[in-house]
């Protein structure tokens, strides 16, 4: 369980997050949605101790993220950031292999190799595994990074806009893979999404943020109503239901 209590964050004069209270139970996919600058990525990086916690408390499985040793936390929580830079002359298999770093500090056992192969397979990278990262397209690189986070083998997976640069096919594939590992491996996935319909199709729960506050929280069918969406995104949009799945028509 991820427990966020009374968390605030400011950069200079700007207040990024205001008194956030949120509990994310173990298991399932939680989608964070909201307009640009709502504080979704900041919240995610605070949970993953990438930024120091200024006010409030965050714990993952009752480990407080600000005092637990980074290495211990890396075995229960993995994060993928949207601007993950990658160094040169690195092959896909090596990159995914870094996911095993928290477990062996760089020494790979046969078990680790098996997990790396499985991650490559899971994200359809087996054919690309000997390619250098810089020769991949943006979408392929994105998949390699998700595969690395998966190879970390943690119970919690935080993903910041992993659908960036992915075409429809691979966006759907990635969301289905995430759904599968949430259902079969019991992973807890927190994912920042811009495509609200992906959230509707694959998430168990949607948390909507705006201007550093949580403004709505619920299942896709509870949350995706014209009224709530207008409160979050600031404009009117139609919502239709197909096969019990709400679809937001926000294009015109």
């Amino acid at each position: 369980m991820i427990r966020i209590e009374d968390v605030s964050l400011r950069h200079g004069q700007t207040q990024i997050l205001h008194d956030i209270w949120l509990t994310i139970p173990k298991g399932g996919i939680t989608a964070l949605v909201g307009p640009n600058g709502a504080g979704k990525s900041s919240l995610l990086s605070l949970i993953a101790r990438l930024q120091p916690l200024q006010a409030g408390r965050i714990s993952v499985d009752s480990f407080p993220v600000d005092t637990t040793p980074s290495r211990d936390l890396a075995r229960i929580l993995a994060i993928l950031r949207q601007d993950s830079i990658v160094t040169s002359r690195l092959r896909v298999r090596e990159l995914v292999g870094f996911g095993r770093f928290p477990h062996g500090r760089g020494r790979l056992t046969p078990d680790d190799y098996a997990i790396i192969d499985q991650s490559l397979q899971q994200f359809d990278l087996t054919d690309l595994s000997d390619r250098f990262i810089e020769t991949l397209s943006g979408g392929q690189r994105q998949r390699a990074l998700v595969a690395m986070a998966f190879a970390q083998g943690t119970d919690y997976l935080l993903l910041d806009e992993p659908l960036n640069n992915l075409d429809m096919f691979f966006a759907r594939e990635l969301m289905r893979s995430l759904r599968r590992i949430a259902d079969e491996n019991g992973k807890t996935i927190v994912i920042v999404l811009h495509d609200i319909n992906q959230a509707s199709a694959h998430a168990d729960r949607i948390v909507a943020m705006k201007s550093g506050r949580i403004v709505a929280d619920g299942t896709p069918s509870d949350l995706l109503t014209p009224k709530t969406l207008q409160a979050v995104f600031g404009f009117q949009m139609r919502v239709e239901t197909f096969d019990d799945m709400p679809v937001v028509l926000h294009f015109r």
């Binding site: 290495r71 211990d72 994060i79 993928l80 993950s84 830079i85 770093f101 020494r107 986070a149």
Partner: peptide, 21 residues
């Protein structure tokens, strides 16, 4: 520190995510 250096080459955020302080 060679393995730690390999991981640090990935950048501060990724390295922190992988358990490097």
């Amino acid at each position: 520190a060679r393995h730690v250096l390999d991981v640090m080459a990935l950048g501060a955020d990724t390295a922190t995510g992988l358990g490097i302080s």
